[in-house]
Nucleic acid binder design. Sequence first.
RNA 1: GGAGAGGUGGCCGAGUGGUCGAAGGCGACCGCUUGCUAAGCGGUUAUGCGGGUAAUACCGUAUCAUGGGUUCGAAUCCCAUCCUCUCCGCCA
Length: 416
Amino acid sequence: MNLKFLRDNPEQARRILELRKCAFDLDGLLELDERRRSLSTERDELRHRQKQMSAQVAKAKQEGQDAAGLMDQAKELSAKVKELDAKVSEVEQAQEERARMLPNIVHESVNEEDVVVSEWGQKPEFGFKPLAHWDLGEALDILDFKASAQLAGSRFTVFKGAGALLRRAMLAYFLDLHTKEHGYTEVGLPVLANRESMEGAGQLPHMEGENYAMRDDPLYLIPTSETPLANLHRGQTLEASDLPKKYVAYTLCFRREAGSYGKDVRGMIRVHQFDKVELFRYVEPDKSYDALEEMLKEAEAAVKGLGIPYRVKRLAAWDIAYQSAKTYDIDAWAAGVGRWLEISSVSNCEDYQMRRNRTRLRLAGGKTGYPHALNGSGLALQRTFVALIENNQQEDGSVLIPEVLRPYMNGLERIS
RNA sequence: GGAGAGGUGGCCGAGUGGUCGAAGGCGACCGCUUGCUAAGCGGUUAUGCGGGUAAUACCGUAUCAUGGGUUCGAAUCCCAUCCUCUCCGCCA
């Protein structure tokens, strides 16, 4: 939500905040805005007079007249302008700070509760008790949680041997699928981002404690490649003819998981460092909701390819990220832990990020507006890995490799 | 890490204290022309904020990397920061 929207539709804004269950002092912000506008108008008027005065001084000097009197008056005005200017910046800054904490609007199709919109595949049946991935992984010697704990602490993972190969194969499969079948351009990105990038994508300031910050440099480990991808064209004005821009990136992602003590502590369902292939699109505003549906299908294609049963949820208003106006989640069924795991989140952020980082779009009449930005996981590796090995485990303890991955694994058909 | 050079509009590039939002060129767009042919001529050509309008128009103000300072007045002078480039060092 931007200020103009707030000013023009305060009631709608209030409703959105309610839906999101977001405590935000809307009136306080609007008051600040009111104050800012009146102060800056006053300041501009004074400055106008001061400029006229300066012009008179210049003229007088040119004509060889004494300008001392004029200069004294101008000096006085100048001091007043300076004073007011300081006030204006103060209010501006306060307002900006608050406005940065505003979430995006919520699309009208979003409900107050999560809604499962589709389901695909069959949950596997076993004639034995399926193992959770931590047991299965250690038994097959493809995951080593003792080693990761020793290296970095809890919530990290060490992949070994065929496990490491499977990880690499899955990432390559995702990237190939999206570049070859779905027309995305692959980019390789930094996993460190500066403050501007973090704020531009909407991760900061409101997720402040959720990111790893560097001690010696003002940089953050990215929580998702959405962060750099949303900033790829920061400060630029894109031409409509350049759109859509479709990027896919594999990066590591880092999250402190600060608020999740005691949740998912075992295995690699919730880890501090994970792998993700991310889809990102810059599109014209009137095409963004079609693009959202397309991206959902693209993410689904990746899950289907692996043969993992899943469901698609349309998230409730209170459940979607700050920067998103509408989000679908894809949950994969993981038979070992017996749970649905979120492996993809596909969001239309509309112009929220583009406004924040000033990525503009030249419109038909030569005017400028903002493109819409969408992102979607395609897919998050660790949880997909979990679902895959848990679902594909056999009575003899081995794990079947899906067809699509075999070419990436030197033809390997099963891990045993 | 050390030394140096530089950051001006979509791009190139001029501008060292007053009418500079900024010459000139390129590009783009709009007209006109089509007897000299992948040409010519004329015009237009940034953005933020605030006001104003039904919407335009229009008005004010800000913006020459960023933030401060000097001055009646700053693209131009001073300070700090950031970024880019070159050379040296280190290094996968």
